[in-house]
Design a protein around this nucleic acid. Structure first.
Lengths: 198, 198
DNA sequence: TCGTTCATTGAACACCTATTCAATATACTG
DNA sequence: CAGTATATTGAATAGGTGTTCAATGAACGA
């Protein structure tokens, strides 16, 4: 085995196991013992690579955020460079996680809840939120006045979060297609309202 | 002391203490010991009146839901009986909790998270969700076609949840006024779009 | 006043969790 | 093949949690 790669492999093993256990047993039921069992490693390895449970949870959230960021990049790369197309790509990317894994919404919600009492997690969450907002504002400003762009961005962000929340609550029977359709519908309405149409 | 009223008083004491402790220490940090301390009662009383910690948490969520329902009734009573007014009242009611207590959003989020792994809490959450949706659809149908009313209701519901989530995350620096304004703005846009205006 | 019922207490208990660290296994080096 | 460093283990530990229940306190009726 590649000696230098062991650490990276083990870390990812543990992060994957953490996601799996949270999905299955919830945030509260995600114990070191269960995570170690799911990763087929020992309980001691968590402290060795992450300094403790908290470190593993932070790393797991960081991983989820990086996946989201990567999805945004991918969806944008596959579309023409026009403001409206960029906005729709952002919506698609933000719901791609729901499509691939219905349970992942639960994990996000668990992290959000945990973040309120953990400054480190909260900071991560804030960075992600600001990135989404500034992304939205950037493209909306090319379609409407700055002030209105800001309001519309806030509304789109709330809409995305709201549909995620509903997806998490609906226990598998989610319809991300509907959420995407409604989000895009709102975006087009907001654009048309400023296009001087009529 | 009124002998027959003791039970009701104690139950409310414990529910109030639960809300206070969750606000302060989060859902995970809300232990029987802390709740008992905050209520100035003993740890044994929880099992006596609620059968255990889980029972107390369910009763607390039930209490929050009943408060929300009461708020909706109050805000509706204070406005004229017109579809648009009713819709705006629903928005106001759903954000009244944030205004009075910035931290209560955290408690809601904690309950949502908990609900995913507790069938009883999930059932309560579903009932509440359906009530909000059917309420919205009822009034929207008087302003637009049924199909569009359904979509708009879904969007409004997601918008409300999304702004609640952002309120919970923003750690006190929330601006419910802005959330209310944006929700109402969306409602008016949706109504005008179907009014054949232009 | 005494006896009875209801309300409340909180120490004792059993259970669970994260962390630690000496022992062991594994993989590289000379 | 030693020898050394690294990687991994998992039993032992310490701390914390919810629940129980015998004992105590308070209020009421006869």
């Amino acid at each position: 085995m590649a000696r230098l790669g062991v650490e990276a492999i083990r870390r990812q093993q543990l992060i994957d196991a953490t996601l799996k256990v949270i999905e299955e047993h919830g945030f509260q039921g995600a114990t070191i013992g269960k995570i170690a069992g799911a990763s087929e490693l020992s309980v001691g390895i968590v402290s060795h690579y992450f300094g403790g449970k908290q470190g593993l949870l932070e790393a797991t959230m960081r991983y989820l955020l990086s996946c989201l960021q990567k999805d945004v990049a991918i969806y944008m790369a596959g579309r023409p460079n026009a403001p409206r197309e960029r906005l729709l790509a952002i919506v698609d990317a933000n719901f791609s996680g729901v499509q691939t894994n219905a349970q992942s919404a639960k994990t996000w919600l668990a992290f959000w809840t945990q973040a309120m009492h953990s400054p480190d997690l909260m900071r991560l969450q804030r960075v992600n939120e600001r990135r989404l907002l500034s992304n939205l504002v950037f493209y909306l400003r090319q379609l409407m006045p700055t002030e209105q762009a800001r309001s519309t961005a806030q509304t789109i962000a709330a809409l995305i979060d709201g549909f995620w929340l509903r997806a998490a609550m609906s226990e598998g029977r989610i319809e991300p297609d509907q959420a995407i359709t409604l989000c895009k519908s709102y975006i087009d309405h907001a654009i048309q309202a400023n296009n001087g149409a009529c």
